[in-house]
Nucleic acid binder design. Structure first.
Length: 569
RNA sequence: CGGGACGUAGCGCAGCUUGGUAGCGCGCAGCGUUCGGGACGCUGAGGUCGCGGGUUCAAAUCCCGCCGUCCCGACCA
């Protein structure tokens, strides 16, 4: 490609609206332009890179035995109503909805379980047909409450979604493992540093599921990982080793005056006790029953774990009026002497002595409160947030917390969708059974941004060669030296003849502009053809990743570039 | 949805407090010089000051409403 003809105007300055490095660089390097919030046009450079990711995904999915299809982006509401997700998506405005001329409700698909499941049910009737795994690469639509950071959270994004259908759970496990391996290969080939974590299932539901996380400062997801790397989980799903029950001397209960100090932080400050000695009491209504949840004061309730602990009962946090109705003093609730209240304690509450907690009386707390003597719990559950330094649930070594971008998510769905949708096959014994499904997503446009988050420097993007829009750029570092221009053309032609993806910077720009743009766009290898070099019979080459420079004889410039590219990361 | 900020030329910004001629840098066009790390000089083009309403003799500037964009939070295949 001749850069003089490429539809790409780089920006000298950072666009005002971009903060995340990938967002900034994608705009500056002319990979994309914004249309509206969370929706972008891919320019030629961006599209080339996007297609490289698609290609890697296709190759690995095909190698894993999945078959590509293309389902419509426009979806009918009916199957969504059957699975109950129309309300979950459309009513909560996550789904863009529309109506056709007859008034029929339609939506733009945010994911396709409701479409692919009936499709397979329609075509396949027997266990003999299974397993099958269908995937597609398609633009997905989600009316995000808050699109952000360019491609990292868009309202229109390119996604690879795959769906496996098996006759039983054993089959699903095999299908699932194949996808895990394919994902490992895909992200490795993309040059992404990543880890697999145990995850919270969220709206999609199902049993076991994993997230593929790319560590990055701008990531929205927190994960924990133990020192020995035998456990990693999203903080939403993370558990820890449970502390041993505490034994020791119990102080007497004492009431202290804590005027206008309803929050843990206030009391910590006033009484000078560490937050982890405060006993936090959270009020909920669970399945209509008043429930108090206890946990150490330095932790938060993990809502996901809480809901799972109480499933299938509805969990609702108490509002101000509820406290009054139940005779609780907001800000000063303690577990001691509560009647007719279900008390659920986090396991960690067993590991502490002499808690400080509310006195169930305005402006008063109590100290020296102990489990067994002063209060009891009806149940113990793992419901508190994880903290840095907590023990690993597997090996006991300490957990660290990291920030990451979710680039892939795999779910074992079971019959969560096939059952309500009536998607069944006839098994060997003649019985009709619902398909046992898995689903597997990769945010392709998000991977593009995640790779940049991990591979950039002051100069711009540093593409792994697998994703670079062009592997090599030939920079003609002069405008008025015919020999240099001719040598540039020659090397460009030679590289093309060798099927190297090469760009020729033949623009009417100064050398400095071309160098800066080459660094910004991030071509792995730069070849500089200039007057000085041509007269001395040499070309300069630069490896973007390391900044390493090589001087090569003119005649060997092409081959040196090929070799450098082959060796580039 | 709650909180905050911003919207002035293609891009980045100043001007707004204290109302009165719309400005700077980059980019763009022409000419000349220069030619290996975002060149220099001269000349020039380019703006419904987000939109609507109000106050005023007069609004980019003050007031109200709306729209848009970003950030924090809530939410989140």
């Amino acid at each position: 490609m001749r850069l003089s003809e490429l539809f790409a105007r780089t920006l000298r300055e950072d666009p005002a609206e971009a903060e995340a490095p990938s967002h900034r660089l994608l705009l500056r390097a002319a990979f994309m332009r914004q249309l509206i919030s969370g929706v972008y046009t891919f320019l030629p450079l961006g599209l080339r890179t996007l297609r490289k990711i698609e290609r890697i995904v296709r190759e690995e999915m095909d190698a894993a035995g999945a078959q590509e299809v293309r389902m419509p982006a426009i979806v009918p509401s009916e199957p969504w109503k059957v699975t109950g997700r129309w309300d979950a998506y459309a009513a909560e405005e996550l789904m863009f909805t529309l109506r056709d001329r007859s008034g029929r409700e339609l939506g733009l698909g945010p994911t396709h379980e409701e479409i692919v499941t009936p499709l397979v049910a329609q075509e396949y009737e027997s266990y003999r047909d299974l397993p099958v795994n269908l995937y597609q690469i398609q633009w997905k639509y989600r009316d995000e409450a808050r699109p952000k950071s360019g491609l990292l959270r868009g309202r229109e994004f390119l996604m690879k979604d795959a769906y496996s259908f098996d006759r039983d759970v054993e089959g699903l496990r095999v299908s699932y493992q194949k996808m895990i391996h394919a994902y490992d290969a895909i992200f490795s080939r993309c040059g992404l540093a990543f880890l697999v974590v145990e995850a919270d299932p969220g709206l999609i539901g199902g049993d076991e599921n994993h997230e593929f996380m790319a560590p990055a400062d701008v990531g929205e997801d927190l994960f924990v990982r133990c020192e020995r790397h035998d456990y990693a989980a999203n903080v939403e799903a993370a558990t820890t080793g449970i502390p041993a029950e505490a034994f020791g001397e119990m102080d007497p209960v004492e009431e202290v005056h804590t005027p206008d100090r309803p929050s843990i932080r206030d009391v910590v400050e006033l009484l000078d006790v560490p937050a982890d000695r405060m006993l936090k009491t959270m009020g909920y209504e669970v399945g209509g029953r008043l429930t108090v949840v206890l946990l150490p004061g330095d932790r938060e309730v993990n809502e996901g774990k809480l809901r799972r602990a109480f499933a299938p009962d509805e969990v609702r946090m108490l509002e101000d009026a509820d406290f009054e109705r139940h005779g609780l003093v907001k800000g000063y609730v303690g577990p001691q002497g509560l009647d007719g209240v279900v008390v659920v304690a986090d396991h960690r509450v067993r590991g502490g002595l002499n808690w400080v907690t509310g006195a169930n009386k305005v402006d008063h707390h109590v100290t020296g409160v102990n489990l067994g003597r002063d209060f009891s719990a009806d149940r113990f559950e793992d419901i508190a947030s994880v903290l840095e330094g907590d023990p690993c649930p597997r090996c006991g070594s300490s957990l660290t917390i990291g920030r990451s971008i979710e680039v892939g998510h795999t779910f074992q769905l079971g019959s969560k969708y096939s059952e309500p949708l009536g998607a069944t096959f006839v098994d060997q014994d003649g019985a009709e059974r619902p398909f046992v499904m898995g689903c597997y997503g990769i945010g392709i446009s998000r991977v593009l941004a995640a790779v940049i988050e991990q591979h950039n420097d002051e100069g711009g993007i540093v593409w792994p060669k697998a994703l670079a829009p062009f592997g090599v750029v030939v920079i003609v570092a002069t405008r008025d030296h015919e020999g240099a221009v001719a040598e540039g053309e020659r090397i460009y032609a030679e590289l093309r003849a060798q099927d190297v993806e090469v760009a020729l910077d033949d623009r009417d720009e100064t050398a400095g502009v071309k160098f800066a743009d080459a660094d910004l766009v991030g071509y792995p290898v730069q070849i500089v053809v200039g007057k000085r070099g041509v007269e001395a019979g040499t070309v300069d080459l630069k490896l973007r990743a390391t900044g390493e420079r090589t001087l090569a004889p003119l005649a060997e410039g092409t081959q040196t570039a090929v070799d450098l590219l082959a060796a580039a990361p």
